[in-house]
Design a binder for these strands. Structure first.
Lengths: 202, 202, 202, 202
DNA sequence: CATGAATGAGATTTCATTCAT
DNA sequence: CATGAATGAAATCTCATTCAT
């Protein structure tokens, strides 16, 4: 039976705090002292749990990728009989994205912006995550084609990346807002689903 | 009559070089000495033309925004009689984007990734640019509605931002490739226009 | 009746271990954690027996000096009737030196090299030890003069220090070797005794 | 025609100063700030001339080895007709050693004591120097045998190392004194030459 | 104007020491 | 007694910026 060690809790606390501070000020503008101060802890303490600053950033990246992945993973492509079922699932995935965004608004922001140029090892992680997300989205599209909901001749990978781009742009746009109203949320959702399925043309 | 001053040429050289070095190594991993070395100039010289490193970064950001803006500005919404004209214009804009991407592949990358978290003043510029691009795209959409090409009830701002998100995602995806074939370029263009106008649904 | 306290045993264990680790890595490259790890003991425990790291180093120095002193002390200048007796005793002292060297090869090394520049208090101890060893050697020389074995007009202190220098150089040279053969041992012994008593001149 | 660059002078100044401070306090107890303060220079300046602290220590070691080597090198084994010539040369070498000692009393001290355990690269340099000195001394002994001044069956390498040990011990002993009188200098010289050539036995 | 030597603020990191458990 | 989590002083090193030449 796995016991949760106290040092694991500490590690998690540090990563969560570092996530917040990085999101606020960016990796390079954040000093170890900043993180320690936020935790109200001596800065030497951080080194009891992580080798160095990069090690923390790496864990922060893992955390972010894990969280974002949850959204996509939990809604697995299941039994979908009609295009409306498919549309419904798209809506659910969109909803989860918005929830995530409300819960921790800087999640995607830190993933795609703040984490650039920290270190090649982190860049590699992010590109891998990006490709992972694309392959998830692509799987949905392929299923849609298989079920006969979507046009059979689309470029699934390119479409998947473009769709993800929309989602991230949304996330970016929303992370700038102070508050997200139900109205704007609905507007976003409608817009994205319309673009994906129906297009804007009359 | 405005004369081009020698010092303006110098400034431009520095900004161009800084752009390249920032794109290569990222702002925080680039030292003033790196830029000076690339220019084969004493690093003290940079301070004759710019107040400090941030000042240079600011000018680089301006340059990048200006260049990207050119793409959108030059293709002004003109006389479009049919949906096919509209579709054709979308294609032209897309083409210009690809050309820009081929010409200086790191342009958008530096704009949205490397420039994050240098300084609030730069972040503000980028958000402004992002909104500017959105308003350009939105203008196209409104024109499309006006002409009766597009659905009249779409959320134009959200759609504009989502569309731009697709373009930036494309740019990001392409900037990872070593080489862009005519085939993949066509695939991207088809995909984006399909998503914008027709959607993926059968 | 003096009882041996458990805490004294502990202290001794720590000093022995510290000696080994210092000899291996040098004082400054050895952390308290290193010593504690070697002892399989919490590093806080060391502070139950010693005030601080310097305190340990001081005790290590005492230990080393004590051990080296044993070699000289045990062979007290006794009844020596002839120059050959004297020569024999020199040989015995030499042998004990080699044995010590084989037993703990880094003993002299730690004394004269690693212990330098830890702290003035330790430097003082080492200088005192050095002078003590010189006075021991000088006593032998004086006895040799008294017995009529040695030239009466030699500078006994200088000669004593020079002789000790030979011994330490030997120790240093041997501590570099992986293995000491019986042959090289004999070569060293012959050489030193020749230098002391007969000189190299024909 | 080789010009002496100003930066070479600076480097030399730093090495000389570092030599003094290391000799005074030892490598590990000397901070970059200490060296800079002694030079009345910002500590950042040191990094314009050396990569890091080890780089400085390495140069200091080179300097010391070079200086000590001069003593041995300049008195090359030349034309020696009689044992008295040989004895005279030994005396001259001894004299040079004393002069070196008076000139910079901490030279040998820093070489054999302070430089231990800084870094394997430095240890290697010192061992190489030690062996170099031994081979020089051995060459003298071999010449002495060849000329028929010395016993033909001595172990030249061991004898060379033992003799050098005497010299270093002398140096060490003298570096402890505040002042070296002509008398004590003569005593040392007599003692060493006696030990080398004639031995102490009657 | 151009230069690059000098500077020191500020960052990361180590580790001896303390002390609550 | 033993422990090891926490601490922060102190060290090394980087680099944007200044300024005398």
């Amino acid at each position: 039976m796995a016991r949760i060690k106290i040092s694991d809790i500490r590690r998690r606390e540090i990563v969560e705090t570092a996530f917040n501070v990085f999101a606020e000020k960016g990796y390079h503008n954040t000093s170890m002292a900043d993180i320690a101060a936020e935790l109200e802890v001596g800065h030497g303490t951080l080194y009891r749990y992580f080798n160095n600053k990069l090690d923390i950033a790496s864990s922060v990246t893992d955390l972010v990728i894990e969280r974002v992945s949850q959204v996509v993973i939990e809604e697995l492509p299941g039994e979908l009989q009609t295009l409306d079922d498919y549309r419904g699932q798209l809506k659910r995935i969109g909803n989860r994205f918005f929830e995530l965004q409300e819960e921790s608004p800087r999640l995607l922001r830190i993933l795609f912006y703040e984490s650039s140029n920290i270190d090649p090892s982190i860049t590699a992680k992010i590109e891998a995550a990006y490709n992972l997300f694309a392959s998830f989205t692509e799987a949905y599209l392929k299923l849609g084609i298989l079920r006969g909901f979507l046009k059979p001749d689309i470029h699934t990978l390119e479409a998947a990346q473009a769709i993800n781009g929309m989602l991230f742009a949304t996330s970016w746009a929303l992370s700038q807002r102070r508050e997200i109203t139900e109205e704007s949320r609905q507007a976003w959702q409608d817009t994205i689903i319309t673009l994906i399925l129906d297009g804007l043309a009359l």
